[in-house]
Nucleic acid binder design. Sequence first.
DNA 1: GCGTTTCGTCGAAACGCTTCGATCGCACAT
DNA 2: ATGTGCGATCGAAGCGTTTCGACGAAACGC
Lengths: 339, 339
Amino acid sequence: MIDVARRANVALSTVSYAINGTRAVSATTRRRIQKAMDELGYEPNAIARGLVSKRTRIIALLFPTPERGMGVTEMEFVIGAAEAALERDHHLVLWPSELRNVRQLDRLTGQGLIDGAVVMEVRLDDERVDLLRQAGLPFSMIGRTSEPGSINYADIDFEQAARDAVSHLTALGHRSIGFLNHSPSAFSVGYGPTVRAADGFRRAAMEAGVEHFERLCGDNVAAGRAAFHELRAMAPHLTALAVMNDHAIVGVMDALDEIGWRVPGDFSLLSMVSSTRVTEMMRPKLTTLEPQSSELGRLGVHMLIDELEFRAGEPPTPTQVLLPCRLVEGQSCGPVRAS
Amino acid sequence: MIDVARRANVALSTVSYAINGTRAVSATTRRRIQKAMDELGYEPNAIARGLVSKRTRIIALLFPTPERGMGVTEMEFVIGAAEAALERDHHLVLWPSELRNVRQLDRLTGQGLIDGAVVMEVRLDDERVDLLRQAGLPFSMIGRTSEPGSINYADIDFEQAARDAVSHLTALGHRSIGFLNHSPSAFSVGYGPTVRAADGFRRAAMEAGVEHFERLCGDNVAAGRAAFHELRAMAPHLTALAVMNDHAIVGVMDALDEIGWRVPGDFSLLSMVSSTRVTEMMRPKLTTLEPQSSELGRLGVHMLIDELEFRAGEPPTPTQVLLPCRLVEGQSCGPVRAS
DNA sequence: GCGTTTCGTCGAAACGCTTCGATCGCACAT
DNA sequence: ATGTGCGATCGAAGCGTTTCGACGAAACGC
């Protein structure tokens, strides 16, 4: 930077002002400085910048590694977030934060490396959120706690997705529909999607005046199969099932095979909140309510950076966004069978 | 840090030595300092450290966003890498580096933010690699160029996977086997896996003395279906197919359905280099050669950090690792049909 | 024509560490 | 006693920026 200043015949500080626009610099001076920078191939040192300005332009993405590993949806959060960060001229660091790491988490925040964080897979009651709040670190969430207060978040609109599922199925004439949810353990740890989708489904089905059944189900094929058989024993008139569980839905299809039912001729299946990258590979291709995962990742980052860049004027008004899922039709939903 | 020094009754520099172990510090002094740090809840500032020591302990993960988006395998690279970085007390930043960003890439390296990089999805001839070499930035690869020289890398052993596929199928009695590869475009841009797996398959089949056919195939269901029909027209005796293309394999199964062939009764299908997370969801559950993706991600990071920490003594001897795939049996491979 | 503001620029003081050279005891051999 | 060597500690000089207060010169109002 000294070299640049010398070559442009200005003071060090003037170069800095030219780069950041912190103070006015005359057009001619700016041009001279720009030229010198180009000729020298100068890049400002991000670390030195960060040290004095207290803005490192690094943000962290906190992602848990859930039991079943990350799915396609989570991956898309990450990619969307990484791209958004790059666009906003920030760096995104990955912090795999399992629950046991909460202690580690504030060791990390203590280092002053990052300006803020985006928290993925937020639970209704999430200790990482409490921790960040205590640490005074700005953050946004992908997902949301039960009491998000004024924290920025972007989340899938699970309630809406459940309503969409119900209305798609009732429009096809179904009058007895089921909902296969995530695992009991997900429910009991307060995993938001599980709880919210169940609520949404219940309400939507009641409003539509259709018979409805719901069930939690382990995230694996065998559990899905068993769950379907049980559900059918309990509700023999069932003609359609909305499933928010990519592994279980395979088991359901197995079970349908076993009793000789065809999809969608004899029974309709609607996959909720799963990527077409997955449902396209199933036979028949599943109709799905696909989340806008990548967009959510982007939003999480943009919200955080917006807040970070505010931090001067008015109190930042919280941005809280729920994004609906998009219905992508496959061949797994059909009109109710004339029996 | 000044507070810590004061509280422990030592000089600033002594605290530093105690933290880094750069110079000997007596046990009693160290204890006093440790106590002071704990009491004050002190965390060394990573940025200030980085500024003077030229070691930021931040490394970048360069991942491309391929046409079809990231698959499960790539995701696992990322997670493995993130975990390994954390273990080695480093931070991992994500850089989505598409080809158009090569210019951007050296803007980023110029900032002096990172100590090194791990490059994912390396092509046989990869300009990112040239760029990093020029920039003098230490890096390791997940994958490898055709001339890796002394660069550290960890890659899937595609040749071995192809051999394993051939031997698994021949052991079941198959004497005419096919190989369905990635897309022609992947091949033509010099995507390593595509080229190496094809070579390995060809060689292994010849050595085993079995009839073999291979074909490139677009990464989608329709292409897979068409490819199978063509392959069958060309090679009517085909009884088994190894497929390294998660989307195409679904199309193959569709095509088999169409002609009334059952898997594995009438025809065997072996999925190559795809995660059980995917193959478990297919019906029948596919037999697959599963890559050790997460392990590869970890290795890439460890190699890089090893090199970074060396940088003082002897010339680091290159670590170059090929990891075989694990055979995970599903229900898609069976003995050749007695015809 | 004289104060007063505005604009562009400058020099120097941080930012929170690492690291270098120097100092200081203290045990050891002479 | 005197010198030597070594482990432990100290003070101070950076690292490459941003930012603050100050200053000269041009532009303004009256």
